[in-house]
């Protein structure tokens, strides 16, 4: 299977007066054609920054991409000229943003906003672009007539549908979905998610799904990357993650959500808070909160190891923890 996107050693920092914030630290990640990769982590772990980095849209200043390569079909997006990456944005790689309330421009009609991206990337007349926009609206379940309405006339869930229609209007090969359902009501969440999934399969689009909801991951993803303090601490297939969890942080995530299938009396949340990304601890970033931490963890940064079959983990004691966990 073809690899569409390959992120190598990506590091992104925000330089502010209070110090340098290490948002993304040396991450590696690849996405294959037609697959969905889930990027899971807490708020502030660098998920959104990674997605913005792929489109080279990290706000600068204060943000800057310090090192790394992002290969899209073998071409480095970070080395591309402004004009070239503009041709890719919206056409080959598009993004769904977290908050549909603010992602649409209030002074243009939704139809115009979708038609804009169509006529930008496709060689067509204004009428054709508008037609395509209306088609896309219908595809996401909004009637054609509403294309002349303004964003404030839509509800949150409807706005997110518009955003999705806009993102998919040019049949992108890669979709970056940044917590597409977080801002929506629970009842709408499932609908929207199902719709994204269905459209993605129909258009054979690959997807990077950013979320902090492991339930969503279990439903939609093929591969999962767990992000903590700007690093990918564990990566593997959905099965590997759920059955052979190896990183203590991932374990913590699973233990902090309620489960219906086992009889758990109480949740076990991860103690403490994520470290200040302006001043990360020495050694392993998770070590201050890790129940398995030993002396080595606070001194030496763990390297990424392969536990077999592409299951990658960044922990000194992953094997031991994995074995212990399975014994439980």
């Amino acid at each position: 299977m073809d690899t569409i996107l390959e992120i190598k050693d990506l590091t992104i920092e925000y330089v502010t007066e209070e110090g340098t914030i290490h948002a993304v630290n040396h991450i590696n990640l690849s996405i294959e054609e037609g697959k969905t990769v889930g990027l899971v982590g807490e708020t502030g772990s660098g998920k959104t920054t990674t997605a913005l980095g792929i489109l080279n849209l990290v706000p600068s200043p204060p943000g800057q991409i310090v090192s790394g390569e992002i290969l899209y079909h073998g071409e480095d997006l970070l080395k591309m000229s402004k004009g070239d990456i503009q041709l890719i944005r919206g056409a080959d790689i598009s993004m769904i943003f977290q908050d549909p309330m603010t992602a649409l421009n209030p002074v243009h009609t939704v139809g115009a906003q979708i038609a804009e991206v169509v006529s930008l990337h496709q060689d067509c007349s204004k009428e054709e672009a508008w037609n395509r926009a209306e088609e896309m609206l219908e595809l996401v379940g909004i009637t054609r007539e509403r294309s002349h309405e303004y964003p404030h006339q839509f509800s949150g869930g409807m706005k997110q549908r518009v955003v999705i229609a806009m993102a998919l209007a040019c049949n992108p090969t890669l979709l970056l979905a940044d917590e597409p359902t977080t801002a929506l009501d629970v009842t709408i969440q499932a609908q929207v998610l199902e719709m994204i999934n269905e459209l993605k399969n129909r258009l054979n689009t690959s997807m990077l799904l950013i979320t902090h909801d492991l339930g969503i991951v279990a439903e939609t993803c093929d591969n999962v990357a767990i992000m903590y303090a700007g690093e990918i601490v564990e990566y593997g297939t959905l099965e590997q993650m759920f059955t052979r969890t190896a990183h203590p942080y991932t374990l913590g995530l699973f233990e902090s959500i309620p489960r219906l299938d086992t009889d758990t009396n109480r949740l076990r949340p991860i103690p403490g808070l994520m470290p200040d990304p302006a001043n990360l601890p020495k050694g392993c970033a998770f070590q201050p909160r890790c129940p398995y931490a030993q002396e080595k963890c606070s001194k030496e940064k763990p390297l990424t190891r392969d536990l077999g079959e592409g299951h990658l983990v960044q922990c000194h004691f992953a094997k031991e923890i994995g074995i212990e966990k399975r014994r439980d």
Binding site: K82, Q86, G90, L104, N105, E116, V117, L120
Partner: peptide, 14 residues
């Protein structure tokens, strides 16, 4: 604003 970021993500020139 977010919608300006959306516009950039669409690939519009600056």
């Amino acid at each position: 604003q977010d919608y300006v970021r959306t516009a950039r993500a669409k690939g519009l020139p600056e």
